[in-house]
Design a protein around this nucleic acid. Structure first.
Lengths: 312, 312
DNA sequence: CGCATTATTTTGTCCTGGACAAACGTGTGG
DNA sequence: CCACACGTTTGTCCAGGACAAAATAATGCG
């Protein structure tokens, strides 16, 4: 990552510095140091001036740990493990069925930086398979492939960003094309503060739009007060929120209760995303949508409960 | 920023923690602490447990300092200043002529999160003014307005991200629309490692494309070896790089010399961006483009030096 | 037995103060 | 006008201690 530019950050082949590890893995410097103190891992080398130098294998291992933590695992168990079959854990948590070689095509294109062909390929698959199948099957498979690639160091951060951006653009333009204002239900989509993953939200938005809902997206990280305000102002039927697995469960619960209380009773509150999937007990007045496939049925339910002419 | 969600990060009105300041200003925790030690500013309050609590005015001041540093100023001078007329310095460095109220419309739209109208507005201005005027006048004015807004705390980070993304999409689709492969010169655009600002590059790309050049963008943060490889593979006439003001001058110089040496002699090397604007002395075999307006003339020069039929 | 509340562990962030390398500005000589 | 050497400025890193927030386990209640 930092080689091939002999002047700066001289890290020939032995390893990289702590700042680079933070950049590559997303683990903070303090965290890296205290793991070393507490668990004995990682155990970086030291350069001439006593600064930590992390060998590539350790960085890779850290990436794996981070990935598992993003899936809800806790570091203590992971780091005490003799660095053995963590791959098995990945399979457990990530619902990786293994038959994901269908998404392998993305990697070489990304690595070759064939941006235009990549965009074209995505557009073509979207057109061929249809929006729903694209969102429910293709994109999750790609996400998994990219996630795995990042974990092994095969994919670099900015390549992941590039991928995310391209997919988001596809979804946005597709959604935009079939945007139908004025229909029901009117759905307000957004994400809570400190939750910045936009892709999941866009996927839901496109599914909703594909099923005839009128969507308004507030983007990410909207304060609760703003959500309530916007919902009131636009006479929203449903507020839909997305949580990534990294989002702390209790915070989500508290925020949802608070939001539910502040929202008009007629406004439904739907939540989804990996953060709520496994652990979620029910919260009164909040509808949890576990899988993308359940979006369309949920809309059907809504329509059943709200006969066309009964409004106003 | 962190209020309106009474449960988390309880910071009523007195101030915010050091992590939040890092997030808001982009200044590292270590930097904040050592400034306090060395220069006596900032001087945060302490909460019940001795942790730093930064009052809003200090955060705002820090934002201003950071902004000036991004324009090339050094902290020592800024922080010793009795926190007085730093605004004057902004005017000096940023070429802010003051008549920027033409860009004020962006702020309310951004704050209202009117995403679709905002996209439409940008698209309309692009169509009305033409790509060149849009890139040379409108976008820089908007950038300045957003930068100022961020500095004063008027604009939040994710709103800035949103803006950047929207403009980038406009530029990308506009450039894509008039892409003409096979014409000359063939230009390879990218950014060096550790330089991630993509907007400037996109602006240049669109200008080049508008003037008939065939552009290939490698995205941001390409290692030198990859640039050389791609240039060779695609038979590139010109390699164009962009540097933000924050990029260390010497690093840029060294990298450029190295790149110039590795590139075929027939391949020109063009550089631009605020990072090279003021201070740049000439480097042999590298063409510095100070202002966006100079892109078109540079292309004209190239055509003059390379008569249409002389190739191969 | 489900759900909420409290105790206990786990885990990340913050603190202080010291130290040095990289970046910068300046001055001198070619 | 440009290259190199020198002192200064400035950011990042280190160590070890400490506590708050999060997660888990244990407990009580309907």
């Amino acid at each position: 990552m930092d080689n091939s530019q002999p002047v700066a950050t001289d890290s020939p082949v032995l390893g990289i510095g702590i700042a680079a590890v933070e950049r590559d893995t997303g683990l903070g410097k303090d965290t890296l140091r205290i793991w070393e103190r507490r668990y004995g891992f990682p155990q970086p080398l030291r350069d001439a001036f006593g600064e930590r130098v992390y060998p590539p294998e350790q960085v890779e291992h850290l990436r794996l740990v981070k990935r598992l933590m993003d899936q809800g695992q806790r570091p203590g168990a992971l780091l005490r493990q003799p660095m053995a079959d963590l791959g098995a854990l990945v399979a457990d948590g990530g619902a990786t069925v293994g038959a994901d070689d269908t998404a392998d095509w993305i990697v070489p294109m990304l690595k070759a930086r064939d941006i235009d062909p990549l965009r074209a390929e995505l557009a073509q698959r979207l057109a061929r398979d249809g929006l729903e199948r694209f969102v429910i099957e293709t994109v999750p498979a790609l996400n998994r492939r990219i996630g795995d690639g990042w974990m092994t160091g095969e994919i670099e951060i900015f390549e992941e960003h590039l991928y995310t951006e391209l997919v988001q653009n596809q979804l946005r333009s597709a959604t935009h094309a079939l945007a139908s204002r004025g229909t029901r239900p009117q759905v307000l989509l957004t994400t809570l503060k400190e939750e910045e993953h936009l892709l999941g939200l866009l996927m839901v938005e496109s599914l909703l739009a594909a099923n005839g809902a009128a969507c308004v997206s507030l983007g990410a990280q909207t304060p609760i007060a703003d959500i309530v305000g916007a919902a009131r102002a636009t006479n929203t039927d449903i507020v839909a929120l997305s949580f990534s697995a990294a989002y702390p469960w209790r915070k989500a619960r508290d925020a949802l209760i608070q939001l539910r209380a502040a929202l008009p009773v007629a406004t439904e509150l739907w939540v989804g995303g990996a953060g709520l999937a496994g652990r979620g007990r029910k919260i009164a007045g909040v509808r949890a949508i576990g899988v993308l496939r359940d979006v369309a049925p949920a809309l059907t339910d809504w329509h059943a409960a709200h006969p066309p002419r009964a409004r106003h």
